[in-house]
Design a binder for these strands. Structure first.
Length: 570
RNA sequence: CGGGGUAUAGCGCAGUCUGGUAGCGCACUACACUGGGGGUGUAGUGGUCGCAGGUUCAAAUCCUGCUACUCCGACCA
């Protein structure tokens, strides 16, 4: 492709509304342009990258035996009412009406449509298992689209749905998809990690997320340094400390703590450390109403963070987890936030780590006062003990081997054992061996194709621009002829090289623009094409051109006679 | 959802406080020079100053309403 014939508007300056590096570089490299919040045009080079990702995904999915289908973006409300999600889904589901005033939505996902398709067209257990996928545009009306392609409203997704007559069969396909996803991310050339994930409200036996490792990632993932254990921090279990609480050695003592409202302030004031303190968080119980507040106490060691996912699953707690308003706290406990301690009168849960402390500091349940030398059972009843905190780096791995480390990750894939959630709601059954109707068991498997493009840049860039992995680069090679307009030899050699690369089936970008060398170098770097061929009079005098590798920065002369061999080695 | 910020040429911004000819850099067009790391000069093109209303002799500027975009927060006892 010739640069002079390509819409590739590169920018010298970073557009002011782009925050993350992938967004900035995609805009600067002329690969995408914004249409509205969370909606983007894909320009030729960007689209080539997207298509490259797409075709790797497609090849590997086909290899796994999955069948490609294509479902509509616009979906009838009826199906969503059947699954119950028309009510549940919330505002992310963009609802629209047609000319007859009938309700439709833009598909944020396709469980309903695929289940409807299958219930009408699969009848026998003998036809199972089957796995269907599509690569298609999804629409989610995000509260706050941000980070460019990372969290757009419209995005390209590969979603797959498998159907089974037994759990064992589901497990088999699930494992196959796990392997397929590893193959895909391997081929994409990304540093990624599959991690155990929370199964959320759906339950089921298993779920894994696939994360691209990048400092800018929105998720924290934890992994053991001595085993293959890896999990989303939402899911990772914090083991109970080995030691039990020791005997109280101090007497309970109340002391005034004016203007101390945080653990940090308490530590400074009382000259202690956060791991010797206990904090009490109050959240809404499941029967909570404004008129009759029901609060539940969650008790943690001061240096630990509450894991909301874990807490939400405890008995009696309202989902989604909501913290009590300061006024509600005051009304129920008679104390202002900042001086709350364990509550003998409220349903309470204490984290495993906080449960083994003794002689600790905590709020005195009296505004402006804290207690020291506090001990469980002697001073407060020890509540139900549960794992309700996030693990921290250095915790022992729940698998029993090694210590946990934490990294940031970008979620690019998610596989899920759905079970019968949708098949039951939509009454999708097949006849079993005995001629009895049996509810289908389902799995679902997603990859954020457009997000992969952004994640890839987050992971692979430098201060000059993008560094595409070869597998998805918009072009494999770029030719940079210097002083093209004036030098006949440069022109001749450049055209010859372009032809040779073409003959070798190497997709090449030919920068035939009449630009000064500096502009061409800078753009080539920005675009991130892996192999650069520089053709200038200087080197040609010695019968050479130059080669530069974008990723390594390696630059070397290439005698004209050796070009063909070198091309062959790419 | 809560709290900020911004809206002026394709991009980045000044001008708004204190109303009076719409500006700068980049990009773009033409010509010339230059030609191995975003070069130089000369001459140009391009904007109903987000939208609607109001005040005024006069509004990018003041007032009112709206819209869009964007950032932060939603881990605090």
């Amino acid at each position: 492709m010739r640069a002079s014939q390509t819409l590739s508007p590169t920018l010298k300056e970073t557009p002011s509304d782009a925050e993350v590096i992938s967004h900035q570089l995609l805009l600067r490299a002329g690969m995408i342009r914004k249409v509205a919040a969370g909606l983007y045009n894909w320009l030729p080079l960007g689209l080539k990258v997207l298509r490259n990702v797409e075709s790797i995904v497609r090849e590997e999915m086909n290899k796994s035996g999955a069948q490609e289908v294509l479902m509509p973006i616009v979906q009838p409300a009826d199906l969503w009412e059947e699954s119950g999600r028309w009510e549940q889904y919330g505002k992310e589901l963009l609802r629209i009406k047609d000319r007859h005033d009938r309700d439709f939505c833009l598909g944020p996902t396709h469980e309903e449509v695929i289940t409807d398709l299958i219930r009408n067209n699969l009848n026998s257990y003998k036809q199972l298992p089957q796995n269907f996928y599509q690569i298609q545009t999804k629409f989610r009306d995000e509260v706050r689209p941000r980070f460019g392609l990372m969290r757009g409203r419209e995005f390209l997704m590969k979603d797959a749905y498998s159907f089974h007559s037994s759990e064992a069969s589901l497990q088999e396909t699930y494992d196959l998809m796990h392997q397929t996803y590893c193959n895909i991310f391997e081929r994409l050339g990304l540093d990624y990690r599959p991690v155990e994930a929370d199964t959320g409200s759906i339950g089921g036996n298993g779920s894994h997320e696939f994360h691209v490792i990048a400092d800018s990632g929105e998720d924290a993932i934890v992994f053991s340094d001595q085993s293959h254990y890896a999990a989303n921090i939402e899911k990772a279990e914090a083991l109970a400390p080995k030691d039990n609480a020791s005997e109280p050695s101090q007497a309970l003592e109340k002391f005034a703590t004016p203007d101390v409202h945080s653990i940090e302030a308490l530590c400074q004031f009382a000259n202690t450390s956060a791991d010797q303190t206990v904090k009490t968080l109050l959240v809404h119980g499941e029967n909570h109403t404004k008129e009759a507040p029901e609060l539940i106490a969650l008790i943690l060691r001061g240096d630990h963070e509450l894991n909301e996912i874990k807490a939400e699953k405890l008995d009696g707690i309202k989902a989604p987890l909501t913290f009590a308003e300061p006024s509600e706290v005051k009304a129920v406990t008679g104390t202002d936030i900042g001086s709350i301690g364990p509550q003998d009168n409220l349903t309470s849960y204490v984290d495993r780590s906080a449960a083994v402390l003794n002689d600790f500091y905590t709020g005195a349940n009296e505004t402006g006062f804290h207690n020291k030398g506090v001990n469980w059972e002697r001073d407060f009843t020890l509540p139900k003990v549960a794992d309700i905190r996030n693990v921290v780096a250095g915790d022992p791995s729940p698998c029993g081997k090694g210590t946990l480390h934490i990294k940031r990750g970008i979620e690019v894939g998610h596989i899920f054992q759905l079970g019968t959630k949708y098949s039951q709601a939509l009454n999708a059954t097949v006849l079993d061996e005995n001629g009895k109707a049996k509810t289908l068991i389902m799995g679902c498997y997603g990859i954020g194709v457009s997000r992969v493009v952004a994640a890839c840049i987050e992971q692979n860039h430098d201060d000059k621009g993008i560094i595409w992995p070869e597998a998805i680069a918009p072009f494999k090679a770029i030719i940079l002829p210097l002083n093209l307009k004036k030098s006949e030899t440069v022109k001749l050699e450049a055209e010859k090289l372009y032809q040779s690369l073409d003959n070798a089936n190497i997709d090449t970008y030919f920068d035939d623009r009449d630009e000064r060398p500096g502009v061409k170098f800078a753009d080539a770097e920005l675009l991130g094409i892996p192999h650069q061929f520089i053709i200038g009079d200087k080197a040609l005098k010695n019968g050479e051109i130059e080669y530069q590798n974008r990723a390594t920065g390696e630059r070397k002369p290439l005698p004209l006679s050796e070009i063909d061999a070198f091309i062959g080695s790419l």
